[in-house]
Nucleic acid binder design. Structure first.
Length: 719
DNA sequence: AGCACGCCGACT
DNA sequence: GTCGGCGTGCTC
């Protein structure tokens, strides 16, 4: 009897395709196969085998090649992919393809890469290095190979072993060159002892049951409360049970410091998965995780899709971070997928943050999550002292007011470090003509151009232009830089603190490989310095010697049109403030603002994150915003605004389930981006199932047209 | 997504 | 007559 397989392909068609197998050996679901599709060969994932087909047998083609002996994706992951596909309304075949590392999306075998090494032959093992005393270079090779079974050519160079003498040894048949798989990242712990927990930490540890199946825990611990130590000890328990741990962090810059702590503590194997790896490294790490060889897997959001045979615990650190949401192709939320995965695999998941997202806080307060609080800073560090600077009274120069300036001076005199936060890179956000009011704008977007040192750059489409000398509207020479970015404040600091090391941390200063790492190392030396940077500073980094944090400007976040604007500002300020005074010395935080009476600042001043978050939740409740209803966004874009808008107007005529509101179409926040006009339709409902029904109806309609480009974003980050 | 098929306007 | 515009529909 002929055996058929249903294969999901990475194409924009929702249905699986059927192919014929050449043997009667069934394939496991999750196996990669190479199949003909149109004129091409594509890699697909086997969904199931079957004996019969329900369409024209003449059309069925045979599978070209079976690519895996072990399925690339486990049955768990296949099921997760089905959920992801339905929830985010994205085609299953494409979801599955995105779950594989790039190296396995093609028709390569799932094998680890190899490294060429030199090893002793059986004959060579019988030779004592002293027998080669007259040939010191060869002798060096033999003695090294007696203490280390395999030497790569890279190691040989650093050990100053001569390649030519190795070739002589090869000719003599004493050593041989072979290709071995890249060894797994295995670590010897340098500091394996658990720290002593305070009572609060101990209570949290005791209350997270690892053997109770699925449960979602939220550790709400103030900055510096020692959350990490709690999950290190939790991880130890999981590892002792012979299970794997998956830790997610929001972005790549946090991988370094996290892995440092993990390596110090655990004597075990690791896999790191993040965007800084090349395809080979990523592939290797992924295969280590899938085989179960790696016991700890640390990665950014996409590692939530990694096949792990013995998974026992998922940790989502800094769970509030917006970087967990993917904003292209498959628009999933890493944290939410992690929770669903834990549920499907019936294991615990731990979310942690000093500033939990409103969704998670809401879930915790409603007992859907188990809430654990850490209210004290560990190691007796005190919460910082927070103060506002009213910019109406203290006009800033290049972003820095007099009170902040003198406070910087004080802290530097005490040999401390200062951290300044400004969420705007470049020199100045606007170039304006003081004669006629004209501003330099991007030709491709509805955005002003940011002034950088040598050019004008659009931060939205990355297009650059040379710096203008004359106004394009009235030809006057009165062009002025308005507002300020990190570079402008950096220049101010260089002028006024000429003997102090100024370190700028933003996307522009950390472009080159390792730049961030080097700069973080300089900071950790502890020398007094001023660090100025964008939001990347706020993300969980440990700055021991920082005692003063200055927030140069966060007013734009207070009155944002976006429903999450205030939540983000609250989180950002709380996190930034938390960078101050992590060690013994009391920290200080100065926030510059033109609106010092805004209630958000009062909450920050009094360390009332939860109080204010609760108020924001109440407001969301009154306005029926998430998490009190569910929403999805449909974007259509086209080179002509009219075409994009009419496509959505047509869509709106389609009848939807009664309990779904359809709002729009309206222009997107930046209606023109990279020469395309973008319009939104927003769907809202109290009922998740009705919302999904509505999305499906509209998606089907969209698939039938080819005029506009479109996407669907479920639980969008911005409305 | 690609790629072919097919039905209408402006060219050698 | 035919070259090529892009609307429609299919891919196992």
């Amino acid at each position: 009897m002929t055996l058929f397989v249903e294969v999901a392909l990475p194409v924009r068609v929702n249905t699986p395709f059927t192919y014929q197998l050449s043997t009667d050996e069934p394939l496991d679901a999750g196996t990669r196969v190479l199949v003909p599709f149109n004129a091409k060969q594509l890699v697909g994932i086997v969904l199931c085998c079957k004996n019969e087909i329900d369409f024209d047998p003449k059309k069925v083609k045979p599978v070209t090649k079976v690519l895996d002996t072990t399925p690339a994706l486990s049955a768990d992951m296949l099921e997760l992919a089905r959920w992801v596909s339905q929830y985010y309304h994205y085609r299953l075949g494409e979801c599955l393809s995105l779950m594989l590392p790039k190296g396995l999306r093609g028709d390569n075998p799932a094998q680890k890469s190899t490294v060429s090494v030199t090893q002793l032959t059986d004959k060579g093992k019988l030779v004592h290095p002293n027998q080669l005393a007259k040939k010191p270079k060869q002798q060096a090779w033999l003695s090294q190979l007696n203490s280390q079974a395999a030497i790569s050519s890279k190691q040989a160079t650093s050990l100053e072993l001569s390649p030519s003498s190795r070739n002589t040894l090869i000719k003599q048949g004493l050593v041989v060159k072979t290709d071995l798989p890249i060894p797994i990242l295995h670590n010897q712990a340098t500091d394996p002892n658990a720290l002593e927990l305070n009572t609060e930490q101990q209570t949290v540890l005791d209350n997270i049951a690892l053997d109770a199946g699925f449960q979602c825990h939220l550790i709400f611990g103030v900055t510096g409360s020692g959350k990490t130590e709690v999950f290190l000890q939790l991880m130890q328990q999981v590892l002792d049970q012979n299970k794997q741990v998956l830790i997610l962090v929001p972005e790549i810059s946090l991988i370094d410091q996290t892995i440092k702590r993990l390596k110090a503590r655990f004597d075990t194997t690791f896999a790191l998965l993040h965007s800084g790896l090349n395809d080979t490294q990523r592939n290797d790490a992924w295969l280590d995780a899938r085989s179960g060889d790696a016991r700890i897997v640390l990665g950014t959001r996409s590692s939530v899709f990694c096949t792990l045979p013995d998974l026992g615990l998922i940790i989502v650190d800094e769970e509030h971070d917006g970087a967990y949401k993917q904003n292209d192709t498959l628009r999933y939320h890493g944290r939410d997928v992690a929770i669903v995965r834990a549920q499907k695999q019936n294991i615990p998941v731990v979310l942690a943050s000093a500033t939990p997202s409103l969704e998670s806080l809401h879930n915790a307060l409603n007992n859907r999550f188990v809430l654990h609080r850490l209210t004290q800073r560990a190691a007796n560090a005190q919460m910082p002292f927070i103060e506002m600077v009213n910019l109406k009274q203290h006009e800033p120069v290049d972003g820095i007011s007099q009170p902040l300036h003198s406070r910087i001076q004080q802290h530097l005199e005490h040999n401390k470090q200062v951290l300044l936060f400004l969420n705007r890179r470049g020199f100045a956000p606007t170039v304006m003509c003081t004669e006629c009011g004209w501003q330099a704008v991007c030709h491709q977007c509805d955005a002003r151009l940011t002034l950088h040192k040598n050019q004008l750059i659009c931060h939205h489409c990355n297009q650059s232009q040379p710096i203008l000398r004359q106004c394009k509207s009235c030809s006057s020479h009165s062009l002025t830089a308005i507002g300020n970015g990190t570079v402008r404040s950096e220049m101010y600091l260089e002028t006024h603190f000429p003997n102090t090391h100024i370190i700028r941390l933003d996307k522009d200063s950390t472009q080159t490989k390792d730049a961030l790492k080097t700069q973080l190392e300089i900071i950790s030396n502890g020398e007094p310095c001023i660090i100025i940077g964008t939001q990347m500073l706020a993300k969980g980094h440990h700055f021991d010697q920082v005692t003063l944090v200055g927030v140069l400007d966060c007013d734009s976040g207070l009155f944002s049109a976006d429903f999450k604007g205030e939540e983000r500002t609250l989180q950002l300020l709380t996190q930034v403030a938390g960078r101050s005074g992590r060690a013994k010395d009391l920290g200080e935080v100065l926030i510059q603002t033109y609106h010092p009476t805004h209630p958000l600042f009062q909450a920050i001043e009094n360390n009332q994150y939860e109080f204010y978050a609760q108020q924001l939740l109440d407001a969301r409740h009154d306005m029926l915003l998430p998490p009190f209803n569910f929403s999805a966004l449909i974007q259509a874009d086209h080179q002509y605004a009219y075409t994009a808008e009419s496509a959505l107007i047509a869509l709106k005529q389609i009848p939807l389930p009664p309990q779904v509101d359809c709002i729009g179409p309206m222009p997107a926040f930046m209606a023109k981006l990279a020469n395309r006009y973008r319009f939104h339709l927003v769907l809202k409902s109290q009922h998740r199932s009705q919302l999904h029904m509505a999305i499906t109806i509209l998606q089907n309609a969209l698939q039938k047209q080819s005029k506009v480009r479109w996407f669907i974003d479920v639980d969008p980050n911005e409305l």
